[in-house]
Nucleic acid binder design. Structure first.
Length: 233
DNA sequence: AATACGCCCAACCGCAGTGCT
DNA sequence: GAGCACTGCGGTTGGGCGTAT
């Protein structure tokens, strides 16, 4: 039996106060991230380490981009979800300043619905035959989303490489039972990790978190069995 | 104005992965 | 190799808020 991550009797739960936020920020600015288990006590917080980590990553990190998702971010999420499924941390890793939680919430509250409205099954990114397609305004192409132009190239490529993501776009099936007016995902993924002329070390100094995520994403992509994923590299 | 309803998002929970002893 | 501690991830929950009735 695993011990709980903290003694729940002595920890606060629920929304964070400004004072708690400030304590956490101050502590991390002084000592850096990590050691989440011991951090709360060291920082004088009555919180569980996991809670501190989540608060920092999802809300307090200085490099976070707050506010609405841009259209190109939406497109990218849809494309990445088609390839990666619900691997939110990987998807968020390609969206500078966005967190996995934010992406996940945005997907569940906006993008899922948007795809459904367009007659696309958000789980497998295939056209849902039970839903009306052309009647819906979005499905007729009124959407300005660049991802919905007709282009099957990458989907074709990915068809044999879905590998451990059977839920992803399967063009082999598509060719058989999906009509040609399929709104396509234009999986031409050209967005890259924010680049700069900085060296890796300089980059890490300026933005340690983004750098860490970028490294992890690159590693995950390299390790991915699916050749499709190499397109991100 | 009061209530019901639906949506959004921060936070929690449990499990899996990884590294250390 | 086993056991443990710690971290990270994805699914889920619930409170707050806006809108509809």
């Amino acid at each position: 039996m695993r011990k709980p991550c903290c003694d729940k009797r002595d920890t606060n739960k629920g929304a964070w106060s400004k004072q708690e936020d400030q304590k956490l920020i101050d502590y991390i600015q002084k000592h850096g991230e990590g050691s989440w288990r011991t951090l709360p006590q060291a920082a004088g917080l009555l919180r569980c380490g996991k809670s501190c980590r989540l608060r920092w990553i999802n809300y307090l990190r200085p490099d976070l981009k707050r506010g609405n998702f841009a259209e190109d971010e939406e497109d990218l999420i849809i494309k990445l979800h088609a390839l990666l499924g619900n691997r939110w941390s990987l998807i968020a890793g390609r969206l500078p300043g966005r967190t996995d939680n934010e992406v996940k919430n945005y997907w569940n509250s906006h993008l899922r619905r948007k795809l459904l409205k367009m007659g696309i099954d958000p789980n497998n990114h295939r056209l849902n035959q039970n839903l009306p397609r052309s009647q819906t305004p979005d499905a007729s192409g009124s959407t300005s989303s660049s991802s919905m132009k007709t282009n099957m190239t990458l989907a074709d490529k990915s068809s044999r490489s879905a590998g451990d993501h059977p839920e992803v776009f399967d063009a082999e099936n598509v060719s058989g039972d999906i009509p040609r007016d399929l709104p396509d995902l234009n999986l031409d993924l050209t967005i890259s990790v924010p680049s700069s002329s900085l060296t890796k070390v300089e980059e890490e100094e300026q933005n340690p978190y983004a750098s860490k995520v970028a490294t992890k994403v690159a590693r995950d992509i390299e390790n991915a069995e699916s050749p499709t994923l190499l397109l991100f590299a």
